[in-house]
Design a protein around this nucleic acid. Structure first.
Lengths: 160, 160
DNA sequence: CCTTGACCTCAAGTAAGGTTGAGGTTCTAG
DNA sequence: CTAGAACCTCAACCTTACTTGAGGTCAAGG
């Protein structure tokens, strides 16, 4: 164990080993506000043990396709500086799970529409609900990408 | 209708209007091999009407989180130059749907594990299956990101 | 004490997925 | 036939999410 001696604080290398992240990634996450380590007398970062969990949450949320900005939004609801309680984590996890459910539901509905299209042959028809954006093509602005406009209930605001 | 006159070929602007993509995005997709338009005498791109469907497929696949490289893999199985038949589209859509199902399943399993963690309180325990990468931390290489290693059945090879 | 590994900062590079702009050509309607 | 919209290429720029490298400091064991 290359654990930083004498107290419960972790060096960046310790944290990297515990999370599987690279040291550079952890420094990068600090610039994004995902962790806010203290510094020792020599200027080296000292992390709380609870930052292992914080970063693990980051990794998991990334697996689910959330951006760093969104994840920062979730983490804002955790206390700064002190170790989050079980209650803190439960709360954030439930919020997260809600957004996750919406994401999965959206994906499934999309897939089911695709199924409909395969079944009815409209992959080769211009009338397909999935493939045919024409009805809303009055659209303007930069980088239009609106084939499947999310229904109002799908809009995600993790930071809300 | 600003349709290119006289035949069934579409100009890049026509295609942009039909798909909702920007002209620059379509040119970019051409560099990635997602479409391979012909050229007229003056050097302007001329697309098949079936390229509307090709690009719509690209948009949908992107919504589902596939990368351009993966999508190019799917599209490789469509005929170049000639309009794909309904059979062509059905085949590609079924392959696609298979990968999609795996993606959704993975996401759901992840979510359910997260649920387990919330329920059992292990979001604050080091033994959580979701949060604890230690067992496989022997790992090396650039940019480790292995909190949730996909199970063998989850590996995606769209181009297979 | 002194070496060596771990750490520090800051700038630049990478890859994906595009957008923007300059400078020039082609089409098409009137 | 000519104006102006639409098109062309090529290079540069943008964001997200990091990595890499240069040049220098800190810390812990022998």
């Amino acid at each position: 164990m290359a654990r930083t001696r004498g107290n419960d604080l972790l060096s960046i290398g310790d944290l990297a080993r515990r999370t599987g992240l690279s040291v550079s990634a952890i420094r990068f996450y600090e610039t994004k506000g995902l962790v806010t380590p203290a510094r020792n007398a020599g200027g080296q970062r000292r992390f709380l043990r609870s930052d292992i969990r914080r970063l693990s949450f980051v990794l998991i949320a990334q697996e689910f396709g959330f951006t760093i900005a969104e994840i920062a939004g979730y983490l804002k609801s955790l206390p700064e500086g002190r170790t989050p309680t079980k209650r803190d984590w439960t709360r954030i996890s439930q919020t997260f799970r809600g957004h996750l459910d919406r994401k999965i539901t959206t994906l499934r509905r999309l897939r089911d529409r695709l199924d409909g299209c395969i079944g009815c042959g409209c992959l080769s028809l211009e009338s397909c609900a999935l493939y045919n954006p024409e009805d809303r093509a009055g659209h303007s602005g930069t980088g239009p990408r609106f084939v499947i406009a999310p229904s109002p209930s799908d809009t995600e605001e993790p930071g809300r």
